[in-house]
């Protein structure tokens, strides 16, 4: 999931009887699956949680351009290069849709960007891993976008209208991302040299566990989940989503003829799901805290792009102001 640990600011889920009339009416609307819209009354903690979740999601889309941007100039063919550029542009678009949705809650985009640039806001841990070979472009599209899709398909039913509509739009575009990634890997496995096939397995080995971490901590160490589910901001728990992802991904892994770096991974006839090994949570929390392999590099690059682009933004605004003054002078 692109928003992995969203603080709700709430210790225990409130009982309905403890709520005032406004909040009870709000919860009744949530219960009947009606969407909450920007002008509607909402509890302050609901609003704040949404801003955190949506902006974390947006920041992930934006930072998520970097690992793939890394290979843009080294794509093996012009066709692959165009496809990758189109995918990266989509991710930028996803960031914009989401910032737009967050802004309906009364925060400014500059404020949200500031929180990202100063390290106050988080983005998904997955983008703090390096992309070391071309097969990583395939593995990112297939696994990382695949995990994002599992999360985002469910989030189309989230209770906040603008967030839900942004998700619908995003989901329409994601399937291309995953298919182009998988096709990269499939081509390498079917037509590649042994060295290229080894690159595919190496990419999967490195990105497998970080992809599973995208869904966030286990349910029992995720204290905010209950409140987010109650508000229907989240619709399924981290562990439920992770299991869905694994169950749908293993058959795809088998078609590739590759393996997952998990000796405990096996089909469980009784549960009808795959069992899998324990995630390295120490690594997860370490990356979240800012100590992953690429955290500093990713953030520095984003801040640099923002600062180096300042003169363009200023010039465009100055030009528009001048044009408006000219137009006004003509009228007068």
């Amino acid at each position: 999931m692109y928003a992995q640990m969203v603080e709700t600011g709430v210790k225990t889920v409130k009982d309905r009887s403890e709520m005032g009339a406004e909040e009870q009416a709000f919860m009744a609307r949530i219960d009947e699956e009606s969407k909450i819209e920007p002008q509607d009354w909402m509890p302050d903690a609901y609003r704040k949680t949404l801003v955190r979740q949506i902006s974390q999601h947006a920041h992930s889309e934006i930072i998520g351009m970097q690992p793939e941007g890394n290979w843009l100039t080294r794509a093996p063919t012009i066709k692959r290069k165009l496809q990758l550029a189109a995918k990266i542009q989509d991710e930028c678009g996803h960031g914009q849709y989401l910032y737009s949705a967050a802004e309906t809650l009364g925060v400014g985009r500059d404020e949200l960007l500031d929180q990202l640039h100063t390290g106050k806001a988080k983005y998904s841990s997955i983008f703090n891993y390096p992309t070391l070979n071309w097969a990583d472009m395939g593995a990112v599209g297939w696994l990382v976008d695949g995990a994002a899709i599992v999360n985002q398909v469910i989030l189309q039913r989230t209770s906040y209208g603008p967030y839900s509509r942004a998700m619908v739009r995003i989901c329409k575009e994601e399937s291309f991302h995953q298919r182009q990634g998988y096709e990269i890997l499939l081509t390498m496995m079917e037509k590649g040299t042994q060295a290229q096939k080894d690159m595919v397995q190496d990419a999967i080995n490195r990105l497998w566990w970080p992809s599973l971490m995208m869904f966030g901590p286990n349910d029992d160490s995720s204290p905010n989940t209950a409140q987010s589910l109650e508000w229907k901001i989240k619709r399924k728990t981290n562990d439920e989503l992770r299991q869905m992802f694994i169950d749908q991904t293993i058959p795809q892994l088998e078609v590739l003829g590759c393996t997952a770096p998990d000796p405990d991974l096996k089909w469980n006839e009784a549960t009808g799901h795959y069992d899998f090994g324990e995630i390295n949570w120490e690594e997860f929390f370490n990356v979240i805290k800012g100590n992953g392999p690429c955290n500093k590099q990713r953030l520095a690059k984003k801040v640099n792009a923002h600062e180096q682009g300042a003169w363009v933004r200023e010039a465009a605004m100055a030009h528009a102001t001048k044009q408006q003054a000219k137009a006004a002078a003509k009228v007068a």
Partner: peptide, 18 residues
């Protein structure tokens, strides 16, 4: 949805792109 832009012409360009 919405876009930020310096003026209406620029808003059209950004909307087209987004």
């Amino acid at each position: 949805g919405s876009v930020h832009a310096v003026d209406a012409t620029n808003a059209l360009e950004n909307a087209r792109e987004l």
